[in-house]
């Protein structure tokens, strides 16, 4: 209990709220790195996953699809910390090399969920869409994506949380952000700073969870939610 009280006291100290090591600054850094990695992830993974799911014919598409699904399982086995350290040792410290592992770890969940989401759209729904005269891109945008949206969002949420969490660890190799409190606290054995940082990171993860829950409510058609619960 003492530790929690100490952490709360840590939040109350005025030096936590200003300057380069203040909470607002660290939070902004964290959001900036995470947002950047997330944006890069989406730009890479979303179009690829959606397009691969949409193109169903041919052996090449099937092979690529298999590769996509395996990549998610593979990515799960990658040790985050090892990857971060390796990237920095091989490519030098700095934001660029640090972002690479963040993106590498976040791409698979987005890719796989977008891919399987579109792929799992029932064939007769797609057949009806084409049969009524939708073009390929109309089928994708008006039918496949709205129906696949729950899975697409799930993949994005997993990736976002993964990124926030990995960005915390990245403080170990010199990245700014909330992870600094944890890593520096551990190094200096200032456990109130460590616990305070951890609480901030947990709050951020909760916030992301909340944002995606809201996004789901707003953007997924009630009809899709109904048919999923049947």
């Amino acid at each position: 209990m003492n530790a929690i009280l100490n952490a709360l006291r840590w939040f109350g100290q005025s030096e936590q709220w200003s300057g380069p090591d203040g909470i607002p600054q660290r939070l902004l850094e964290h959001l900036w790195y995470s947002g950047l990695a997330f944006a890069i992830t989406l730009v890479i993974a979303l179009p690829l996953g959606l397009a691969l799911g949409h193109v169903r014919r041919g052996r090449a598409a099937a092979a690529l699809g298999f590769a996509v699904v395996s990549s998610a399982n593979g990515a799960r086995a990658l040790p985050t910390l090892g990857l971060l350290i390796l990237a920095v040792l091989l490519a030098g410290s700095g934001v660029g090399p640090t972002l690479v592992p963040l993106v590498v770890l976040a791409v698979p969940p987005v890719l796989v969920n977008a891919y399987t989401g579109v792929r799992q759209v029932e064939p007769q729904i797609r057949d009806a869409a084409e049969g009524m005269g939708m073009t390929g891109s109309q089928v994708l945008w008006r039918v496949e994506i709205p129906v696949a949206l729950p899975l697409v969002l799930l993949g994005m949420r997993t990736a976002a949380i993964q990124i926030v969490s990995t960005a915390t660890i990245a403080a170990y190799v010199g990245l700014g952000g909330l992870g600094r409190y944890i890593i520096d606290g551990l190094k200096r054995q200032e456990y109130d700073s460590t616990a305070g940082g951890a609480i901030l990171v947990i709050a951020l993860a909760f916030l992301i969870q909340l944002i995606f829950t809201g996004l789901h409510r707003l953007s997924v058609s009630p009809g899709v939610r109904l048919s999923a619960s049947h």
Binding site: I169, G179, G185, A195, V201, I202, F206
Partner: peptide, 10 residues
Amino acid sequence: ALPAIALFVV
């Protein structure tokens, strides 16, 4: 959703 490192240090 909880980051592992945060849970460890808590």
